[in-house]
Every structure is written in structure tokens, then in C-alpha cells.
Design a protein around this nucleic acid. Structure first.
Lengths: 254, 254
DNA sequence: TCAAAAGTGTTTCCCATACACCCATGC
DNA sequence: GCATGGGTGTATGGGAAACACTTTTGA
């Protein structure tokens, strides 16, 4: 944004002392959703190496490099640093601004959510300096649980207000899935996928099973007829009748 | 939030130097929607008294009192200061974080939207030290226009990126109106209103006329049968058949 | 008696759901 | 052949949209 202004205003700006207002720290936190090997809804979390909440699990994220990047870019950079992923579906979720949500000082967190297929995450999740893990999201009587092969974490064990952030992210994801194209972002390969694969993603997110014939109908109506998705000549064989393959046109849904 | 921790961690926190990360300024901006006397969608704007963007029109808002209030409370306080309104329907919209959106320094803005009936605004809008105005939102070939009896402002004349903020607020409002109870917040009197009054609000926000019989049907189904709205014994007479009055139960929709 | 606005009832159509049935492959 | 999953077609029901019609007031 080029800011044109008068000589008088330019002088004001040059003399402006940004430090006269006390300023908060700003971080971004990212809820990275993925599907695990059994197609269950999962999220990426990082074990904290320092205080506060040392050794507790938290969402990936970090401080804004003030003046050097936008808030969006900060989230993108953090995602890159924690997962190695350059480009991904990505959307701002909510800003959490309670003054005591971080015991150090006022830290305002702009939360984002991202949808990333598991195979793109696996490269990075294990061999990082910090401990990272992908946890399946479960529910019991008093809230969420996060578990993988090694361990289970209760929602009350998470760092900061991250349980809240995750709850809100799940809520938004479930609401968006019906009218946004988010589901495509979780496909293993947007250049070659079957209707059943896409249906599985919807089922996982909505946590209920869908009728395949009806799902196909809406898929053809909403995506193929409008040109967002293209039918390929190929089919894929596994068990039963070979399935038609489709391809997402016009770049990723990012 | 009470933060329990070990002696070791307490020492870390006490020594923590919050200033070692460069921090941005944080403001809240509020899109205050209302309906003008002719039931047209309007917003409140303030004429800026200082640089930057001196004498330009902007959304009401201001800097966070870091450490003394949450971001939500900051928006509530600003709304109170600019309009005198203590309680109102209120919802976080989006956080704008481009590094150059304010020429002074990095200023991150958490935008909110509020819906307030005109008669509650009028008290304050004229007699404030700062100049305030309620502007009807219009559209022409290249964007929005904001006008009242005295003047018309083009969207390119607004301060900062506030035209963007307003655009997003309108988009969200239009999407929410169908499945949230936002419209009630714009009623002159939630203790006594007619179906036609509520319909007018929906029509204004969606910018299209609705069928009264059908609107009545969904109103009765969604609100009266569920007890959210109560039918009164009174009717109101103006021209034509007297209309039944309804009352919103269980407090405001805020 | 007429205009104007409230209120009622009916018809139509679309779309989501449910489900019966056929198709193509591996074994 | 038969089990398995892909793919097609049809019936049903509920809700939104369109609209004809009645009711009650003021002028």
C-alpha cells in the first residue's frame, strides 16, 4: 500500500513514537487437520520445550516478526517451519485476546486452521528437533481426547487455551464442509481421486456415514457440471468394480 | 485463569523480559450497522481528528489497553466511548494484519461488527467532540458509497483498509442473517414488535423483498413454536388490519 | 366502499433421503 | 459362481417459493 501524504503529515509520521502505547505480543497458532491412516480426524501438536507449559502439548505456532511479515505470513511461516509445507489450504479462524491466556505477558493469538493430507506431514513430524505428533481426536463424557499409538492426552493437559482453539476449529470445519470446498484439500492426490475417497473425507469430518449414490449425485451436480472437477478417462482397480478417477481443475483449493 | 506452576517455572516467568520480542500495536475497529429512518442499511463512521488520514472518515475503534482488558473488552469499550452504548449485539469479524496497513507502525486490527437500532445511536452521534455520522451504504459500478443528508463518501476516501473491513462485514452479515438471530438486534423494541418489522430488517440486509406469508410461516415455526419469541395479546394499529405484537423472550440476542 | 396491510390456505417444485437394482472386477 | 465395491434409477417426503384469497382496520 503506497501511502501518499502531505509534508505536514510526513513530519508527523517521522516523529511518531510507536512506543508510547504499551503493546501486546502477537502470535499465530495453527490447527493442522489431517486424516490418519485409518481415515480418522487428527491434528498436529508440538511438545513444548520451554516454559510456560513446558513439556505440555500445544498447537504449532509462534511470535509475529513484527514489521517483517503480515499475520497471515506469520502463520504460513510457522506452518512451514513446523511441517515443511510451503503451500496448503489455510484460513483464519479467530483471534483470542484474553489478557491472562499466557502467564508471561499479554499475548494475543490469531488462530488459523489448515487441512493437509497425512503423507505430506509425515516427512517432518518425527525427525524434528522439537517433538511433534499427530493425534486422533476422540470424545468422551468430559471433553476431547487426543491419542496416537504412543499416548493419550486429555484436553485439560494442553497448553494455554488451545483446547478452546481446537474446539472452535472443529466446529468451523464441520460447518464449512457442506458449502466450502475444504474437503478436496485432504485428498492424497487432487489430480487423481475417486468419489469414494472424497466421500470418506466428508464422513470423517461430519462423523457420520453418507449414502454413496446421493453423494455422487451432488458431486456431479456441484463440481463436475460446473467444471470445478474434471472426469478422467482412467479408472482405478482395487476390489470390486473399477472406479472412475476425477481431477480437481484450476489449481488447489487453497 | 489461575496458572499453577512449579518454583522453577515461577522464576522463569518472573525473569521473563517481555520486551525482547518486537511487538505490534493492536487496535479494534467496529462496524456498527444500523437502519436509517427509511430502513436502509447504514454504518457509523468517525471523522479522524489527527494524522494519519486526518479529516478522513474511519470506523470507530482504538488501541488496546494492553494488560488491562481483553480484545473483546477493548471493542466494547470503544463502542461505549463512541456511542454511549453499554450492551449490544456484538461479534468478532476478522483480524487484519498487513504490515503496511497503518503508515505509523505495524498496527494489527481486530475487527468486530455490532448491530444497533438507530434510536439508540442518535443521542451520541451528533454531539460528540469528534465528528460522527451515520451513512447509508450504496453501491455503484466501482464499489461502495456512503452517504447521508450532508455528504457522500467514496470507498476510496476512507481511512486505512476500512473499506475492506466494511465489505467483509456486509458479506458476513448477509450470510449470518439466515441462520443466526442477528435481525432481532435491530428492532426498535424487542418487547413489542410485529412480524412486518422483522421482515423489513431481513429485506434490508439481504437487499431483496420477501414474501410475507412465507416469512410469517418460518417465523412461527422457528421462533414462536420454540419459545424464543412470545406472542402478546396486544395488537398495533396504523393503516390496514392491526398487527399482532411479539416479544423476544430470554433477554436480548447479544 | 375502497385502499392498505395483516393473516390464512393451497399448489408447486426442488432437493435431500432412502433404497432397489445393475455392473465390472478379483478370486 | 460370488463377494465386493462402483454406478444408475426411482420413489418419497419435507420445506421453500409463489400466489390466491380472506380479514380488519382507517379514511
Amino acid at each position: 500500500m503506497l501511502y501518499q501524504c502531505s509534508k505536514e503529515e510526513r513530519e508527523f509520521l517521522d516523529k511518531y513514537d510507536a512506543s508510547k502505547y504499551e503493546r501486546p505480543s502477537v502470535t499465530t497458532d495453527i490447527v493442522v487437520f489431517t486424516l490418519d491412516d485409518l481415515d480418522r480426524l487428527s491434528i498436529l501438536m508440538i511438545k513444548r520445550g520451554q516454559f510456560p507449559y513446558k513439556d505440555r502439548w500445544a498447537l504449532p505456532g509462534g511470535f509475529l516478526h513484527t514489521g517483517k511479515e503480515s499475520v497471515d505470513d506469520c502463520a504460513r511461516r510457522e506452518l512451514m517451519e513446523e511441517t515443511g509445507i510451503e503451500e496448503a489450504f489455510f484460513s483464519q479462524l479467530y483471534t483470542f485476546g484474553a489478557p491472562d491466556r499466557d502467564p508471561r505477558t499479554t499475548v494475543i493469538s490469531v488462530a488459523y486452521m489448515a487441512l493437509i493430507p497425512k503423507h505430506r506431514l509425515q516427512i517432518c513430524a518425527g525427525d524434528d528437533a522439537k517433538e511433534a505428533g499427530i493425534f486422533q481426536i476422540k470424545y468422551d463424557v468430559d471433553g476431547m481426547q487426543f491419542s496416537n499409538e504412543k499416548m493419550t492426552i486429555r484436553e485439560s493437559d494442553l497448553a494455554f487455551d488451545h483446547a478452546n482453539v481446537i474446539r472452535m476449529a472443529i466446529f468451523r470445519l464441520r460447518n464449512r464442509i457442506d458449502y466450502e470446498d475444504d474437503a478436496f484439500s485432504l485428498l492424497k492426490d487432487t489430480e487423481e481421486f475417486t468419489i469414494s475417497e472424497l466421500k470418506k473425507i466428508h464422513e470423517t469430518i461430519k462423523n457420520k456415514s453418507l449414502d454413496l449414490p446421493n453423494f455422487r449425485k451432488s458431486f456431479l451436480r456441484d463440481y463436475v457440471k460446473s467444471g470445478k472437477v474434471q472426469e478422467l478417462d482412467k479408472t482405478i482397480v482395487s476390489k470390486g468394480k473399477p472406479a472412475k478417477l476425477y481431477k480437481l481443475t484450476g489449481g488447489d483449493a487453497s
